[in-house]
Simulated scan of single mutants.
Amino acid sequence: MDMAFAGELALNGALVGLFYALVGLGIVLIYKASGVANLSQGALAMVGGYVAWALATDAGLPAWLAIPLVLVVMFGLGVALERVVLRRMAGEAPIMIIMVTLGIEIMLRGVVPGIWGADVKRLDLGIGQDPIFLGPMLINTAYLVGGVVSLVLIGLSVLFFGTLHGIVLRAVSDDQIAAWSVGIRVEHAIALAWGISGVTAASAGILWGSVQGVDWTLSLFLVKGLAVAILGGLDSVPGLLVAGLLVGIAESLVAGLLDPVVGGGTRDIVAAVIILLTVLVRPYGLFGRIHIERV
């Protein structure tokens, strides 16, 4: 493999890794607020992609109007899931709550394609298809636009933790009982985290749906997002950025090196291997606090 080709793979992989970081962001936000790993994040990304397609195609709305509407709908869906389903689980063992989020993932993965169809649907956001030349390297335009948008959203989330609502979330993350004692409504903070999680998942689903089309496979973002969240540290938003880049680059390089040899499919294994190695070697991730407990 020559250096130009390796650089092309690494750069495009890094941009895709930012998509993964956007999915992982929702997982981290909910973990920071409630101490529970959200295993429905992949399905939320899928739902966001389907809703965007429905508004843009069935309703005929332009992308500049459809996308904000999708984000509002997904914020509401995230809040509704927390209030209707998760809040009923208050006081239960964390593993039971995690199983409920997995149940939401499985349910949405079956119901949503059943409503709109499982065939691949084209989502046109008006992003050009022509690649960008960077010296001898070709950069996928959709990857570049999606990567930039993901980077901006992750940056905004970091700034968010400096606002009043962000400080409340941080307080709830540190100690829910202490937060209650000073008048913070913990359940509202957790609902807010779920709402934001719905928005970040939908953003990733829309961006990736514009690249590969919209179908049930968008829900497979769950494994990628988990790999990024675990590697970066489940309580570290900045760690998501580094972890996303590492996962994306690793996937791209491994696929570029091994797919021609074994016939394909190696990209999908990388995230699972990263999860396994991180849990075994450094269970608190690259930037997580050491006292984190994994379930």
Rank of each mutant, 00 (worst) to 15 (best):
E293W: 11
P260Q: 06
L192G: 04
M3K: 09
G256A: 13
G285T: 11
E293D: 06
S203F: 14
F221N: 11
L144M: 10
Y31M: 09
G146Y: 02
A171G: 12
R294Q: 10
L9I: 08
I230C: 14
V211P: 02
P131Y: 04
L231K: 05
L159C: 05
P68L: 07
V100M: 06
V158N: 04
E82S: 02
V152I: 13
H165Y: 11
D235A: 03
S236M: 08
F75C: 03
K224P: 01
A201K: 05
F221M: 15
V23W: 14
V168K: 10
M1S: 13
I290K: 15
G91S: 12
V295T: 11
P62R: 04
L192E: 02
V72K: 10
A54I: 10
I269E: 01
L11K: 07
G147C: 04
F287W: 02
L277C: 10
W216V: 14
I206N: 12
S181L: 10
S40F: 07
L125P: 04
S40K: 15
V111G: 03
I98D: 05
V16N: 01
I177W: 09
G7H: 07
G285W: 12
L169I: 09
I67P: 02
L226W: 15
G198L: 10
A189W: 00
G248I: 00
T200M: 15
L18W: 08
L156M: 08
L125N: 11
V100K: 05
A255K: 03
G7E: 00
A204E: 02
L246R: 05
G78K: 00
I269H: 01
F287I: 09
G233K: 07
L15H: 03
L159A: 14
L241R: 12
L61K: 03
R87F: 09
A201M: 01
L25K: 07
P113A: 02
L241H: 11
L15C: 15
I274M: 05
L138Q: 13
W53L: 09
G166P: 07
I98Y: 03
L125I: 03
Y31E: 13
M3F: 14
I269F: 06
V247Q: 04
I139W: 06
D58M: 11
T141Y: 06
K121I: 07
H188D: 08
L11Q: 00
V254N: 01
A201P: 03
I132T: 06
D215N: 12
I196D: 00
T217M: 11
E187A: 12
A66S: 13
L218K: 12
E92F: 15
L220F: 14
L280D: 01
Y20S: 11
Q129H: 12
L15P: 01
G264Y: 05
L164T: 10
T57P: 02
S203W: 14
G128W: 00
P131R: 10
F161W: 15
G146F: 04
G91R: 01
G232C: 01
A193M: 04
T266N: 00
A178R: 06
P238K: 08
R88Q: 14
T57W: 08
V16L: 12
W64D: 13
I30C: 09
E8T: 07
D174Q: 14
I98T: 08
R87W: 01
N38Y: 04
T200D: 01
